[in-house]
Design a protein around this nucleic acid. Structure first.
Lengths: 111, 111
DNA sequence: CTCCATACCTATTTGTTATAGGTAAGACAG
DNA sequence: CTGTCTTACCTATAACAAATAGGTATGGAG
């Protein structure tokens, strides 16, 4: 269901997840909709993309998960660890590097 | 040898190759160095990355190849086809979409 | 004649997203 | 109390692209 055109996406889901969870604690399903909303519909990542990213980040100790009851439902909320914050900063920097590098090559038009 | 950190690179080699070949006819080895120079050292793609991209683009009729002698050497020069120009425009647009989408999510800091 | 830069090539590995399912619980209509 | 929709979670597999790590051959410099 992902409308995102695949190209240029490598690393993007991880970056978006880290950035949004740095703002506030969220659970997976909420995150899926938050990514769509925060990107103004640009990214519409399927759950099958977001959940594996969450699990991978948790295993790598960049996220911490905790189960919480809310509205009579059990949900799994995620927050950044200190390592996660560091990773977010690094990824943001890398993203900027690539973005600026591409801008230089594209030059005036298409910039 | 590629110093580029792998993440955020999907689609980028193809975009860069198309953009540079839109400016002027070039051969593979020249292109490798041109990418490095034009990106101000941001991208240092290995030949093993660039050649397969060239071959793929040629098969897909986005590039046209011709052998030319220069400086007592036979080289394979590539130029964009009409389809290639169209593809470049599309890719540039997609790139901008992703770039802007990420910028929106990252927000003020890290932007 | 040796070495290095040029110039080209490709098989394999690695890493990531995307797809396409599946499970279960609560809400709500009929 | 039954069916359906949304919420909420999950994962195996496929698809795809870059990166790696090789290999070949030629020309020029020393």
């Amino acid at each position: 269901m992902a409308k995102t055109n695949a190209l240029f996406m490598s690393g993007v889901p991880e970056l978006l997840v880290l950035r949004l969870l740095a703002r506030e604690e969220m659970y997976g399903y909420q995150l899926v909709r938050a990514i769509k909303a925060a990107s103004n519909e640009t990214f519409d990542l399927a759950e099958g993309v977001v959940y594996p990213v969450l699990h991978s980040l948790e295993v790598r100790k960049l996220l911490k998960a905790r189960e919480k009851m809310a509205e009579g439902r059990s949900r799994i909320y995620y927050t950044l660890t200190a390592k996660g914050s560091k990773r977010l900063a690094e990824l943001s920097e890398q993203w900027q590097r690539v973005r600026d590098g591409v801008a230089q090559v594209l030059g005036g038009q298409y910039a």
